[in-house]
Structures are given as C-alpha cells and as structure tokens.
C-alpha cells in the first residue's frame, strides 16, 4: 500500500502511467459530451414552463458540480502534499485551481444567461448563484496566494493550507447563504426545486455530467504532465525524454 503511494508519488512513474490513462479519458469525454449535448439540445422535448431555455441546464449543472468537486479534489491533493510530501499531488492541485475557477465562472455565466428568460434579469441574489460567486472568490484567493510567494515550495504549502481551510468553510458558507436566502427572499421561481425530472431530460444531463468529469480528469492529467516536465526539467529522465523526441 505505502510502496504503491510512493510509487504514485514519483513524477517519473506518474508521467508514464498518465500517458496510458489519458487517451481513455479523452475518448470518454468526447463521446459522452457529443452524445449528451446532441441528445440534450436536439432530441429532448422542450420544458412546458421554460421552453427551450431550460436546455442551458446541460452546461450549467455539470459546470456547477465540477466547480465544487474540483475544490474538494484540490484540498485533498493539498492534504496529500502536506502529509506525505508527494510533489505530484501539489502539481495536480496547482493545475486544478484555474480549471476550477473557470468552471465556477461558466456556472455563474450560464446561470446569468439562464436568468434572462426565467427571472428577466442577469443577476439575482439567489442562494445558489451567491454561493457560486463566493466559491469563485475562494478560487481566486488560492490562485493569488500561490502566486504571491517567491519560493514555489512556500507557495504550494500556503495554497494547500488555504484550500483545506476553504473546503471546511464551503459547507458552512453554503448553508448560511441558503439560510440567509430563505429569510430574505421568498423564492419566486426555483429552477431545481422540481420534484421529478422526466427520464428523457435527465439521461442526457447524466451523460453531460459524466462527460464533464472525464474532461476534467483528462485535462488535469495532461496539465499535470506538462507541469511535471516544467518542474523536473533539470532531472536526467526529462532531459533524456527531450532528446528522444525530435
């Protein structure tokens, strides 16, 4: 078990194994996203209340899922880095942060676009949108803190601590914002409060969510690989690799 973890922690080994894993995730992501979006955008019947505008759910919900999952994975990677000093975990955390911030932004933006036909405005201080906005600030904080340190190691450890502090706070923030929302604004229209979603709307959403996750894993593997090459550029195996490839 421990030997396995330390093997996984070695950048060289990770570079090899990720090269074999990555294509599968790319294929899965491409297939799932293609089928999911064509099914969801063309073949799913329109919603009886929202018409075709509901189809933005196929981008909005997967992005929102991923925005939260990426923060948790980032914090876990930070914990692994802090406890076992596994450098690959920190490299993964470093490349995940901008991706998570981008997903949060996509969720916010698609929420705003969705708000136009349903609420008649780009922005409402809706509990979900507000929590998403705060999540975006948390991501920006982690990215900024990592960049602020002159030494990369200090920046990595500081960002790991902040990610862990953030991940403990996310549920607290989420529940307090929900509570605040129910107190201040009666929900005029709830998008996700619907009890049951018909199968033909739900199935493409599932495909899209899985597709987004595969895309995230593939992209994280790819970016971690280039981060390995960048940080380990002084190592012999990286230089040998650079000489091999024309």
């Amino acid at each position: 078990m421990w030997a396995f973890i330390h093997k996984l922690g070695s950048p060289k080994w990770f570079y090899g194994i990720s090269a074999r894993l990555m294509p599968w995730f790319w294929i899965a992501a491409a297939a799932l996203l293609l089928v999911g979006s064509v099914w969801g955008l063309l073949f799913t019947p329109a919603d009886y209340q929202q018409g075709n505008s509901f189809r933005i759910i196929y981008v909005h919900v997967p992005a929102a899922f991923l925005a939260q999952s990426i923060f948790v994975s980032m914090a876990i990677a930070g914990l692994v880095f802090m406890v076992w000093k596994i450098k690959v975990a920190d490299m993964a955390a470093a490349v995940m942060a901008p991706l998570g911030a981008a997903m949060t932004f996509i969720a916010l933006f698609s929420g705003g676009v969705w708000g136009i036909p349903t609420w008649g405005t780009w922005w409402m201080w809706d509990a979900r949108l507000t929590s998403m906005l705060i999540l975006l600030f948390l991501y920006i904080g982690v990215i900024a803190l990592r960049g602020a340190f002159a030494s990369r190691d200090s920046g990595s450890r500081a960002a790991s601590v902040l990610a862990m502090v953030g991940v403990i706070n996310i549920p607290i923030i989420k529940y307090s914002v929900d509570w605040w929302y129910t107190l201040h604004q009666p929900a005029s229209f709830t998008i996700t409060g619907r009890v049951s979603m018909p199968m033909e709307m739900w199935a493409p959403l599932l495909l899209m969510v899985l597709g987004f996750y595969s895309f995230f894993i593939a992209l994280t593997l790819m970016r971690t690989r280039s981060e390995i090459l960048r940080r380990e550029s002084g190592k012999r195996w990286v230089q040998a690799l650079a000489e091999e490839t024309p």
Binding site: A144, I173, S176
Partner: peptide, 9 residues
C-alpha cells in the same frame, strides 16, 4: 481576498 469570503457566515 483570502479572509473576506470566509467571513460571510
């Protein structure tokens, strides 16, 4: 930037 989001609750 780091602290204000955590102050919200």
């Amino acid at each position: 930037l780091l602290v204000l989001p955590l102050y919200i609750p």
